[in-house]
């Protein structure tokens, strides 16, 4: 099965490329996947439509975005506007309530009640966005199993 993942930014694209490989090696994926990743043109950018069409040969296209505290439904609706009707059945959306760094906080058991996870991590462990890819191999998967976004992603990847 061919899956293409479009992420919020280049850091996410590199991170998910390594993370999915890890999920594959760790036996989390039930079906054999060939996959690629790229950077999403933007949450509301007419180029998304072209990116989807350019990957129309894939069985699934997953759009991964950050809601940054906004309503997840709102972000999904904005993405929907750029999904051509004929591709609706093969495009899936995964939206983090805040940002992907939630997973790092969860994995390191760091709470993020009062600020964005990336800011908390910057303060606590000197995190910067370019370091995201380093966490693909070190996230605690047993902790992530309790996370809704993680289970949703697995569900999409494992759905034949």
């Amino acid at each position: 099965m061919h899956v293409f993942i479009l992420c919020e930014d280049s850091y996410g694209s590199i991170f998910f490329k390594r993370f999915i490989k890890r999920l594959k090696n760790a036996g989390y994926l039930k079906i054999n996947l060939n996959f690629g990743t790229d950077r999403l043109a933007g949450i509301c950018n007419p180029k998304i439509e072209r990116q989807i069409k350019a990957n129309s040969h894939c069985n699934k296209i997953i759009l991964i975005a950050d809601a940054h505290g906004k309503s997840i439904n709102e972000i999904e609706s904005r993405l929907n506007l750029h999904i051509p009707e004929e591709f609706f059945n093969k495009v899936f959306k995964v939206v983090f309530p805040l940002e992907v760094e939630e997973w790092i906080c969860l994995s390191l058991n760091i709470t993020h009640l009062y600020d964005k996870p990336s800011k908390i991590l910057k303060h606590r462990i000197g995190y910067e966005k370019y370091k995201l890819q380093n966490f693909a191999d070190s996230l605690d998967l047993s902790r992530l199993e309790k996370d809704q976004i993680f289970t949703r992603l697995l569900q999409i990847l494992n759905d034949p």
Partner: peptide, 12 residues
């Protein structure tokens, strides 16, 4: 501007 471009289906 984004809304208008989306309606027109053209890139930035």
């Amino acid at each position: 501007a984004k809304r208008r471009l989306r309606e027109l289906g053209i890139t930035h």
